[in-house]
């Protein structure tokens, strides 16, 4: 800055102030341009709008499952059989890797409908066991073939590398037989 050689002390200070103000304002402007550039990569309005899923469970028999899609991922909806309920109630939940009871899994006021995200909590594969004839694993629930995680009938992790139980998304009953997930 060869130009600042002359000028009184006060002049120098006034100059510095205006340059600092101008450069920082330009910096703020440049930084605010980043906002639209970054937020354009966030989910678009149509994706956000599709973030709830309605499931009709009126024709779901005990032991049957429905595979639905929730937020672009598989959703398992299963009506538990009385035997399964009995079986899982017999186990002490406290000794599990991710301790959750039947009520934790189903929510209050829900007797037998289990809603799980069909996404293994290990690395995101889709576990088997929701459809007829699929491998249900050693605990008669779900089995992830990628790295061998075994889930029980409540979708709780029992064996294998997965750290937590299958995720239960937020849901509510909009009618007696319709569930809104999300």
């Amino acid at each position: 800055m060869a130009s600042t050689a002359e000028g009184t002390e006060e002049g120098v200070r006034r100059r510095d102030w205006i340059h600092i103000a101008a450069v920082s304002t330009a910096g703020v402007g440049g930084a605010s341009v980043l906002f639209p550039l970054i937020s354009q990569m966030a989910p678009t309005a149509d994706v956000l709008a599709a973030s709830t899923t309605d499931v009709d469970v009126s024709s779901l028999e005990p032991g049957q499952s429905i595979k639905a899609v929730f937020r672009e991922q598989p959703l398992f909806v299963k009506r538990l059989t009385p035997e399964e309920i009995e079986e899982v109630n017999a186990i002490d939940a406290g000794g599990l890797r991710d301790p959750q009871t039947l009520e934790d899994r189903l929510g209050v006021g829900n007797e037998d409908i289990l809603i799980n995200l069909g996404v293994c909590t290990h690395l995101g594969c889709v576990p088997l066991g929701a459809a007829e004839g699929e491998n249900k694993g050693e605990f008669d629930g779900y089995f992830c073939p990628c790295h061998g995680s075994h889930y029980d009938a409540l979708g709780r992790i029992r064996k294998g590398p997965a750290p937590t139980n299958l995720e239960v998304p937020e849901f509510s009953f909009t009618t007696e037989t319709t569930i809104r997930v999300g």
């Binding site: 906002f35 937020s39 354009q40 990569m41 966030a42 678009t44 309005a45 149509d46 994706v47």
Partner: peptide, 25 residues
């Protein structure tokens, strides 16, 4: 270009997608 698709079937609609759905599109 992150939101566009070069396909005559959808290109025009993709512009509308950018205009309506993409954040600050």
């Amino acid at each position: 270009a992150m939101h566009y698709a070069a396909n005559t079937e959808v290109a025009f609609g993709q512009i509308e997608h950018i205009m309506r759905n993409v954040n600050y599109g």
